[in-house]
Write a protein that binds this DNA or RNA. Sequence first.
DNA 1: GAGGCGATGGAACGAGCGTTTGAATTCTAG
DNA 2: CTAGAATTCAAACGCTCGTTCCATCGCCTC
Lengths: 206, 206
Amino acid sequence: MNAPHFSTKQRILDSAETLFARHGFAGASLRQVTASANVNLAAVNYHFGSKENLVNEVFRRRLDSLNEERLAALAAVMKQSKFTLEDVLGAFVRPALALSMADDGGAGFVRVLARAFAEHNERLRKFLHDNYSHVLKQFVAAFGQALPHLDKQELYWRLDIVSGALTYAMADFGVIKRRPGMSELQHRDLAAEHLIKFAAAGLKAG
Amino acid sequence: MNAPHFSTKQRILDSAETLFARHGFAGASLRQVTASANVNLAAVNYHFGSKENLVNEVFRRRLDSLNEERLAALAAVMKQSKFTLEDVLGAFVRPALALSMADDGGAGFVRVLARAFAEHNERLRKFLHDNYSHVLKQFVAAFGQALPHLDKQELYWRLDIVSGALTYAMADFGVIKRRPGMSELQHRDLAAEHLIKFAAAGLKAG
DNA sequence: GAGGCGATGGAACGAGCGTTTGAATTCTAG
DNA sequence: CTAGAATTCAAACGCTCGTTCCATCGCCTC
């Protein structure tokens, strides 16, 4: 199904991402993946070693760039002498929502991510923690500066809630129907706007 | 593993709930379920017809009582001549979080629910919509009364965000670690308190 | 053109899956 | 106590799963 001029590895990753999003890690078989990628079944084990490792690589490919973008956006924000809570929130939220709007399959990946959270998969959690906890740490520090009246424990609680709302929004769990005549992209932009406003108010709550 | 004095049907439902929560619908096999329930493999197809139908029954058992509780709580709130946003939020959130704290397996069920959302399962969504949309409708009306300055579209957006944060909190996706010496129940109570405060601020945001 | 090598191909492996079967057992009503 | 229904049981069905094997291909280097 995929254009044949991309490498076997890439086509496997693309198809895996799509099918994992649609049917879950257990629900999507390597036979489905390789068929959709127009690739031999054995190619997965040849290039990735195992299905489990394929799952990890699907994550790594997207998360590396996402977190680079987030850190770059955060660095830009913090270079200013004065920055607002909304600035920090934007640096955290916008790259994520941009990914969920990307037309290169990023939208599918976001659902994979949401699924991974829902699955409470310990192996995957460790993978995420090992590879990306430094990003979270920097944002916690930035949020702490923007919300100096909150103690650390309280801040953690609220950031956890923000993450939940963001994950939910990214994965398009919601029941809100897109207005006729509004593009998918406008819809998502609106979602980002609402989410940031909502989260800012919640974070500032007395 | 379950006490043998409950009916076969009940023990299957209990075990299925736990294992679906842990491994997903595709990931948990009927052999695992029946082994954990100390029941013969064929009992599932005898009592439920199929694995798919077992999934539905796992949902029905919990959601019927949850939504009854929510509606009762909402009715109690709206009987007052004056009720606050926090009251309505409480009627929506507390029964859900109580379920997620229940020591009868409700906690497991909440994860099953979160998983179902993440799986974007159309069959299941239809099932949920068909059986429980009237509950949502009543809450939308109540929130509308408590937030008269919000237009309907804006209200929908914000309630969607609340649902996301609630789902996330219920399923205990978060990374917040329970403080040593704090019981699971206290931890969840704290989560409910934080969530309601956060959501109220977000809903009221100018 | 020959040799080497990474990549691909088809076929098969054992294991586990959901479901079905039909006999054995337990329960229940007369 | 007994006949019949309801339930439980062990075993097997056909199928799909992830993985492995080895032959084959395409391409680069000598």
